[in-house]
Nucleic acid binder design. Sequence first.
DNA 1: CCGTAGCGCTACTAAAACAATAGCAATGGG
DNA 2: CCCATTGCTATTGTTTTAGTAGCGCTACGG
Lengths: 126, 126
Amino acid sequence: MAIPRPGEKVRGSLSGSPINALFDLLGRRWALGILWQLDTPSTFRGLQALCGGVSPSILNARLKDLREADIVERSSVGYALTARGRELRALIVPLGAWSADWSADLFGVERPGMRDRVAAEGATDL
Amino acid sequence: MAIPRPGEKVRGSLSGSPINALFDLLGRRWALGILWQLDTPSTFRGLQALCGGVSPSILNARLKDLREADIVERSSVGYALTARGRELRALIVPLGAWSADWSADLFGVERPGMRDRVAAEGATDL
DNA sequence: CCGTAGCGCTACTAAAACAATAGCAATGGG
DNA sequence: CCCATTGCTATTGTTTTAGTAGCGCTACGG
């Protein structure tokens, strides 16, 4: 699957504006999870484990997408975020705290201090 | 498709942690776009148009997901974000500015002032 | 050398999600 | 009653994702 290009049509419809291109990309399965887990660089198999055993085919496809989009790159220590990717990740980090509240309110799940850990450390093991 | 519940397995794998449940939800097609467009309440067909003509079946499915997740609700003026949904949307608004930069750098697309408009007004017509 | 282990990744099949189109029941004018 | 609009379902066909197996490569230790 080609990465969505602003200015062209994006998967079936839409104006192809930048935000929609981004949403198309991030709306693919595991894209957000990969971004989240790549806080620290990981090997392919390491990342696969972090993502709960995603199938390698889809992991590879998503990594390819994210590399073409200049969000992820291969380094000596495995896959890592680019500078731009780190900026993007910084924007989605607050979702961690939001999801903790959401989960607690909606499902009654509670994990004391989780909010603060996320806010303070950007913990990835939610 | 059932909404992802923290604590249970999420679509095939993962730990079922809150952030992963959220990523599962937002990783479905149009979920992010709907959140983005629901800045102002819209009717079903209005929202469909805003999203570039999404098919009604998938729009309906996504609205159902988002309503079960207490992110979207039906009001007298159509579909609208809940209080929680507005909080979530606020977190993704910065993606608009990021996507504008990303698009400009990666594809050479340029629209003067877009960044500022997004930052100042939260423009949705990117 | 040879076996073993880890790595990145491809191939294949089955299941699920999504897209596209048509159209129905309900509501509210004119 | 007629017509337009709305929310939505039904149906069909395509695309994407899941799940599993395993190949080629590199780097060991023996």
